[in-house]
Design a protein around this nucleic acid. Structure first.
Length: 188
DNA sequence: CCGAGGATCATCT
DNA sequence: GATGATCCTCGGT
């Protein structure tokens, strides 16, 4: 069953944690790919690390759309990161998907990533975008559609909260969530 | 195993 | 002109 706006419109920290164990699906003409979400990070209002914290710009405009919108941005001159817009429309909060456990379309992922090491396919925000062929073309799409969506997976498993990775501001906030003992998280 | 450094460019100052 | 929600490679231990 596909997750709907009701799920995404919940408080951002709640969504970040409850996305763990759900299944991200990417459909394309080449075939379908999917993975279990095993690691997320929340970015909230009044959070200095949040792209929306300094107001709406061309880049972060999708963050201010309705819950269940995809926010995809380009970073470091070569990488993309995929987020799900959460909470109330207009406040600019989202959840970054940081790692997946691949479960379908693995040969397509291997081709896109140019590696056959399954642990390197989707363990990292930019890696999973490359594996699923997600770029800024997908920025702003609605996850209620048929291109990218999330299926309800298993019941919530034991999860861990920790500091986020790769940010300079807001390091003290425990807004990173991951499944305990999962082998596909991006970092220990 | 681990850390340092480079790649590479859209966005914002 | 500097920076960044990253990743890869290389060299040292």
């Amino acid at each position: 069953m596909k997750l709907d706006k009701h799920f995404y419109a919940a408080p951002t920290l709640t969504v970040a944690r409850s996305l763990l164990g759900q299944v991200l699906v990417r459909r394309s003409p080449q075939g379908d790919r999917a993975g279990i979400i095993v690691e997320t990070e929340a970015y909230t209002k009044n959070d200095p690390a949040c792209h929306a914290s300094r107001g709406k710009t061309r880049r972060n405009a999708s963050m201010f759309g309705p819950a269940g919108t995809a926010y995809v941005y380009f970073i470091y001159g070569m990488h993309y990161c995929f987020n799900v817009v959460t909470a109330e429309e207009g406040i600019g909060e989202a959840v970054l998907i940081r790692a997946l456990e691949p479960i379908a379309g693995i040969s397509l992922m291997e081709e896109s990533r140019r590696t056959k090491d399954v642990k390197l396919l989707c363990s990292g925000p930019a890696r999973l975008c490359q594996a699923l062929d997600i770029t800024t073309i997908e920025d702003g799409i609605n996850l209620a559609g048929e291109t990218i969506y999330i299926l309800a997976g298993s019941q919530p498993k034991s999860s861990v909260a920790a500091a986020r990775i790769g940010i300079s501001a807001g390091q003290s906030l425990p807004y990173r969530f991951y499944l305990a003992d999962n082998k596909f998280i991006s970092k220990k």
